[in-house]
């Protein structure tokens, strides 16, 4: 039954992937002028001789004179084989540029998700159980400010504090010596030393909102008769809390990863730019500003896919903890 549900859910996401690829391609096509004109412009700007024959060959290869659907077909069949086109700004195939950055983006989003859960869950429970106490008000206030402040602003303030009071540079994900080094244990440890700050910054607003949700859910449950019954039967307060109301309150909590994940992925773009992290965001931004559309399109497509997968995972998790969903 569960397997059937997961299969159905995966099938459901196929049209989503298709739509995401259409949108990404439409964005590639959106700027005026086609890829070859921009390519010729960059070549001319760098003083290279423009070889008309080469331009024609490129035009031919990407079918730039063909209608939208044909061009889309060529692009997407290339993408499925791992060929995302060429970045004219970098003069390299897009696929060589994106994977490490996407990997780091994924690591960042995943780390943030875990951080969010690890912090929001206990704090949410705490502030529900200690309703209307000083600590509840304090958490509520922090939560609201966290929700109201754009991530990038927090990142800027953090950078300012680090520079002015500690004389440290907190941007980037690696120290100088590991920046271009191949992967090794040392580089990984170095990554861990740097990644906690971006994770904390990115996680703040989603932690705040999840904390509020957890608190509200738990408050609804705590008034129910079964809690009173369990308490009357002499169950210890901690076991009572963990065993019943928290489990039920967790349910809407899991379903929120569905939207928390796209939000994390997209919120990371701006924060990563401010902190100059070597993730997808800053390169996407640079590509968009330079109208390097194949590179930008590849990132948009992959980021979209990432959030669709995130949604899928959250639905499956939800089915795992709540049998009612599987049988629907």
């Amino acid at each position: 039954m569960l397997l059937g549900y997961i299969l159905r859910r995966i099938l459901w996401s196929v049209p989503f992937f298709f739509a995401a690829s259409l949108i990404s391609f439409a964005l590639i096509q959106a700027p005026p002028g086609d890829y070859v004109t921009s390519f010729a412009a960059t070549l001319a700007a760098s003083g290279d001789v423009i070889d008309q024959g080469r331009l024609e060959a490129l035009r031919d290869r990407y079918g730039l004179d063909a209608p939208f659907i044909v061009q889309y077909w060529r692009w997407i069949s290339g993408v499925l084989q791992g060929d995302f086109g060429i970045s004219f700004e970098w003069q390299q195939p897009v696929s060589q540029l994106i994977w490490e950055r996407m990997g780091l983006s994924l690591a960042l989003a995943f780390g943030t998700l875990i951080f969010t859960w690890a912090v929001a869950l206990p704090l949410g429970i705490y502030s529900a159980v200690r309703k209307y106490t000083l600590s509840d008000y304090a958490l509520t206030t922090i939560g609201f400010v966290g929700l109201a402040t754009p991530n990038f602003l927090i990142a800027l303030v953090m950078m300012y504090i680090a520079v002015v009071y500690f004389g440290a540079d907190v941007s980037g994900l690696f120290s100088q010596e590991y920046q271009v080094a191949p992967w090794s244990w040392g580089r990984f440890v170095d990554l861990l030393k740097h990644i906690w700050l971006p994770i904390a910054i990115l996680g703040l607003s989603s932690t705040a909102s999840l904390m509020r949700i957890m608190r509200a859910n738990l408050l609804d449950e705590l008034n129910k008769p079964y809690v009173t019954t369990a308490r009357a039967k002499g169950l210890s307060e901690f076991r009572l809390l963990m065993k019943y109301p928290v489990r039920i309150a967790l349910n809407p909590f899991v379903s929120t990863i569905g939207w928390a994940f796209p939000q994390l992925v997209s919120g990371a773009v701006i924060t990563a730019f401010v902190l100059s992290l070597p993730t997808a965001g800053p390169l996407l931004l640079q590509a968009l500003l330079a109208q390097d559309m194949y590179l930008a399109g590849a990132f948009i497509l992959l980021l979209c896919c990432l959030s669709i997968v995130g949604m899928l995972v959250s639905d499956v998790l939800l089915a795992l903890i709540d049998p009612r969903i599987r049988y629907r």
């Binding site: 796209p262 939000q263 773009v269 949604m311």
Partner: peptide, 12 residues
Amino acid sequence: LALPTIPIWLGL
């Protein structure tokens, strides 16, 4: 809702 809003906004 499944699409990451900021990349789409940026692209548009």
